[in-house]
Design a protein around this nucleic acid. Structure first.
Lengths: 230, 230
DNA sequence: GTTTTCGTCATAAATAATTCATACAATCGT
DNA sequence: ACGATTGTATGAATTATTTATGACGAAAAC
């Protein structure tokens, strides 16, 4: 489970601690020194999680969170707020501004990592390494394998990621654009029609066990993975 | 998706290429030859997107971007930066130039258009995703499904939008032209009678569960969705 | 160097949207 | 009550749009 994490923190000491610990756990780290910095960085990057200090020079952490929640592209990114112990009473308010969790300084690296994992699991299930199952189709991120009714299926890399995303976000329609953003990545430029092709490849790979029926076309809207066939 | 685009570029050749390509895709183009020009143009116009050359006579592209980001009125406009290949290494430095994306010269028109599209689509406000229910008829925008008393119903794209509109605006009559405005979009050139046809299709789709009775004709006025039958 | 995998394209196939012609129903004036 | 008039319903034809699919060259992985 490796994620890209944006750290918004002005104290160099804490920055270092975070960079080190996150790095240890295989995450990529981007650092912003203040709110403006963060907003501007976010224009070009799309991290999987944001660690946001409450007290920042200039814009406060809450302001930053509000800005993020107000942007359609960024809205879905989980935010963990870092607060000093004296600010603890503000906790409740912090959770109100769109933070998914908060943690008080000083924090133990262990606690931090645990919370990060929890938040990622909740907001970006495809980032975790938990096995998923939908309608008899099983996908195990750890062994990187897919089974249809016990039979191993053979998928290409992109088809695997696509299926993983669908399985962790079942019963929900995604437009081609959204799929490109989530499965291919934020700044890639590929034709929307390319999605069609990979959907087809995914379907024919799942055909072996008949699970291609799970991938449904929603005309005019996109695609959906659903256990309830229609 | 047609937009007004400000091109800030000093080389006449590239200017032409951009004007042509953007025009081809239905966009309106405004051109500025340098930074000062751009700033002053922006006083009177509010484009949907700015294509900004990195190297400009006088003010650099970054300066222009900073000015734009510092202006409350202009802050929200997405910026795509045009950089020469030799400047490429600056990319990695982080996209912290205030740009939403960048593209290196020479660029393919295809790539340019793809990136423009990607940037523009992020700004599109998403419609509400709350499920709606009226008289036993349920519509879920997230999974893009409709259920009549638990049974899944099959609607075409336009019928889906039409029903969604009705369900979020129940107990109220809408004329055909209002429906055209709200469901089809403003100022679409379509016969009013076309609404009748889609009403019929919606009704026959809802017939399966008997919910076609919810769609009521109000002679001389239009149509209404109502849970109280008459 | 061979094999996979990607992304794109061209084309076929499927499904929808719009219009049109006509049938039907309600309303109005007499 | 009756015919005229106006508004609505509906089936069919026509166009337009979307999606599916097979093939191909380029790039990446092995």
């Amino acid at each position: 489970m490796s994620a890209t994490i944006l750290v918004v923190e002005d104290e160099p000491g804490i920055q270092e601690v975070l960079k080190f610990n996150l790095g240890q756990h295989g995450h990529d780290v981007i650092v912003a020194n203040d709110g403006e910095d963060a907003i501007s960085l976010l224009r070009g990057a799309l991290p999987d999680l944001i660690l946001l200090d409450w007290m920042l020079p200039g814009m406060t952490g809450i302001d930053v969170a509000k800005r993020i929640r107000g942007d359609a592209r960024l809205r879905g990114i989980p935010i963990i707020m870092l607060t000093a112990r004296t600010e603890e009473r503000d906790k409740v308010q912090g959770l109100d501004t769109g933070a998914d969790d908060y943690i008080t300084k000083p924090f133990s690296p262990r606690e931090l990592m645990a919370r990060i994992k929890a938040v990622l699991r909740r907001r970006a299930p495809e980032m975790t390494e938990d096995p998923v199952e939908v309608g008899g189709l099983k996908l195990d991120p750890i062994s990187h394998r897919v089974f249809g009714d016990g039979k191993a299926l053979d998928l290409g890399p992109t088809e695997f990621r696509l299926l993983h995303f669908f399985m962790t976000h079942a019963e929900r329609v995604y437009s081609r654009s959204q799929l490109l953003d989530h499965v291919w990545g934020d700044h890639v430029f590929v034709e929307e029609r390319t999605v069609d092709v990979h959907i087809r490849r995914l379907r024919s790979a799942l055909e072996t066990s008949g699970h291609d029926r799970l991938i449904q076309t929603v005309r005019g809207a996109g695609y959906r993975l659903s256990a309830t066939l229609n």
